[in-house]
Amino acid sequence: MQDVKYTRPTTVQEAVRLLQEGGPTARVLAGGTDIIVMARERRRDTSVFVDVKHIPELTSISFDQTAGLTLGAATPLYRIYRDETIRRLYPALVDSASLIGGTAIQGRASFGGNLANAGPAGDSIPTMMVLEGTANIVGPNGARQVKAEDFCTAPGRSVLELGEVIVSLHFPAPKPNANARYLRFIPRNEMDIAVASCATHIQLEGNNISYLKLSLGAVAATPLFVAEASTAAVGKPLNEETIAAVATVARNAARPIDDMRGSIRQRKQLSYVLAERTIRDAVHRIKGEQTEFN
């Protein structure tokens, strides 16, 4: 391991000061499941770890019927998927939380870390996008909010600037008659990175779609919010024709690469199939027919 200093601030202001003083090699330490490994393997020069888990706002979960859900950015995944309120009202967050790594990773890893890493296949990011998630960021110039869909800029790159830390993630209160689902395709069931993934959030009015948001993972340089999917769906009846139209939009929006996990053709087809399945599963959830997560 490189020669690294460990700091443990107890307030956001102190964390920001430590990050600013440490410069570009100061790293926020939340779950550490990526950053400790990257520092050890010298894929990231690291001089200071700023352990943010002792700042109360970073690890608290709060829900209010009107204000919605606020998740401390460093809250470990196991607390998210065991939280009864989140399981009931935001099941798509549970889909994502229970798919990242294995049990020992979920004991530490966080949604804030998954977002900050800005990986194209980050399993929580498509879900955050369709649930209208916002990152509450604090830095040397004060606080700002960035929508999940605007956060990632390139593989491993984001809008975060020097000295900034994600304090929490906010999700609006659940809409009536609406629900969401996240699915990914991998060759085994767990402990792998998505070949392609999809999150869909849908609201019904009678049998018509009144709202739909769809996003894809692992099919572009960043997780991809597909705005055109909403246009193809809203106002249309929920039937096979509409589902096929939305899935076609997803397939056309995907701009994947060929690599060891999958080919361009396979990933585009998976975008279609996962769009169909997430729509159907989200509708099952609206009707109270589906309880499973993985």
């Binding site: 460990y6 330490l29 400790i36 470990p76 196991y78 990773i105 004991g107 530490r108």
Partner: peptide, 19 residues
């Protein structure tokens, strides 16, 4: 390297001793 830390399973290679 799995250990139980404060009631949950973690990989001790991904935890700093200082934590």
């Amino acid at each position: 390297c799995a250990v139980i830390m404060d009631g949950r399973l973690v990989n001790s290679c991904c935890v700093m001793a200082a934590e």
